[in-house]
């Protein structure tokens, strides 16, 4: 893939790119003016939310090559060869990730718009730092804005999830929807 990377030329303004999304290889045709956020949504990854489109709100956060990044600022063609995790790759309704469980149980979700980005940022935090302090959580979720709940319940949810991951607890494993 590296060699192919050397030159990407738009044909009639369209680039052909290959990327891995939630562990599955995908090929997209993307316009030279298109952003990863729009390309993902066009291909059905609707959890990646379009909030501000200027890199301010964090609703479009995805894990891009291992780190949280903002899909609204990534030209789609530069995602050629990259690995992306969206919240669809984290857990399902039947088998949610501990962070997803904790966000529901803590009542951290109101309208839900900011939650995919917030959970992906939190996941990266907990992967790097399994026992973050409240201050560390607050700083880490700095770039994920929420207009409903007031930044209290989400912090509690991340702490709850951290504790459960540490203790190997899982509430809803295999539970039918």
């Amino acid at each position: 893939m590296k060699k192919e990377n050397a030159r990407l030329k738009a044909v009639n303004g369209i680039f052909e790119i290959c990327l891995g999304i939630n562990g599955v290889k995908k090929s997209f045709s993307v316009k030279n003016t298109e952003f990863l956020l729009d390309a993902l949504r066009r291909h059905g990854y609707k959890s990646v939310k379009k909030g501000c489109d200027t890199g301010d709100c964090g609703s479009c956060t995805v894990i891009f090559n291992g780190k949280p990044a903002l899909a609204c600022l990534i030209p789609a063609f530069t995602a050629h060869g990259s690995e992306i995790t969206t919240i669809e790759g984290l857990g399902t309704v039947q088998n949610p990730h501990p962070l997803q469980e904790a966000f529901v149980e803590a009542g951290a979700v109101q309208c839900g718009f900011c939650i995919p980005g917030m959970i992906l940022s939190s996941k990266h935090l907990l992967d790097a730092n399994p026992e973050p302090s409240e201050e560390e959580i607050r700083k880490y979720l700095d770039g994920n804005l929420c207009r409903c709940t007031g930044y209290v319940k989400q912090i509690q949810a991340v702490r709850m999830a951290a504790k459960r991951i540490k203790n190997g607890e899982k509430r809803f494993r295999g539970k039918a929807s």
Binding site: G55, K67, I74
Partner: peptide, 11 residues
């Protein structure tokens, strides 16, 4: 820590 947000610092 004052530089934008964590996700922007990754980019």
């Amino acid at each position: 820590p004052h530089f934008a947000s964590p996700s922007l610092r990754n980019m």
